[in-house]
């Protein structure tokens, strides 16, 4: 996983609630066997018209938001399908932090597993940040160490994050490697389970 410490970047405001992972990355982009290059499919139906041409009025296509590293969005971001292609595509496009009033459960976990930071703030604060993002060309700072978002006008917003999650993100820890250190305990669990539920042991 990529470590996340601090990000200074433009923010792209996407003022929609319930953005589902089908919209973030439509199914035709799920057919590859690697995780690279998914930015081409990110928000495909919103970004491109039927002929595959960029829709100039869609916020992510506007020049002032090109190269944004933060996305600001509405409630329940990332609902729907469990596809991890959603955080992969967002990151491939350049997004490293998403600020929203709430995130769907599976998307939240998938993001954390890839070093994409979901920042939860109250709806009023998200609306304020959304306003400040309008017009682009401003710098937002997302600092995980101090758990703050600093808006272009200098306003500081504090966010909560579970301390262990934070630690893992900052260090960019490999979850599998961490869990494998618990192999002896998993071995013991398996031995006990084999005794209490022998019918599951083929």
């Amino acid at each position: 996983m990529e470590a996340f410490t601090r990000l200074d970047a433009r923010a792209v405001p996407l003022n929609l609630a319930n953005i589902d992972t089908d919209q973030i990355i439509p199914k035709q982009f799920l057919k590859q066997v690697d995780r690279e290059g998914l930015a081409r499919g990110l928000f495909y139906d919103l970004r491109f018209d039927e002929a595959g041409k960029e829709k100039p009025d869609f916020v992510m296509n506007r020049p002032e938001y090109k190269g944004a590293g933060v996305m600001i969005a509405g409630d329940n971001f990332g609902c729907g399908s469990s596809r991890e292609h959603a955080p992969w595509a967002l990151m491939d496009w350049g997004i490293r932090a998403i600020i929203a009033p709430s995130f769907a459960d599976i998307f939240n976990g998938n993001s954390l597993n890839n070093g994409l930071l979901p920042v939860v703030l109250p709806p009023e604060q998200v609306a304020e940040l959304m306003d400040e993002a309008k017009g682009g060309n401003h710098l937002f700072t997302v600092d995980l160490e101090s758990q703050t978002v600093v808006s272009p006008s200098g306003k500081v917003f504090h966010f909560d994050i579970d301390p262990q999650r934070k630690d893992k993100l900052i260090k960019g820890l490999d979850a599998i490697g961490e869990t494998l250190q618990h192999s002896p305990e998993i071995d013991v669990f398996e031995m006990k389970a084999a005794l209490s539920r022998p019918w599951l042991e083929g």
Binding site: R35, S82, E84, G109, N110, N113, D162, A175, T179
Partner: peptide
């Protein structure tokens, strides 16, 4: 029973466990 992402699929394949809250 619940859905997981691909990083978690890899985690389960490797460890037969999942990190959960």
């Amino acid at each position: 029973a619940h859905g997981i992402g691909t990083s978690e699929v890899e985690h389960v394949l490797a460890t037969q466990t999942l990190r959960q809250r």
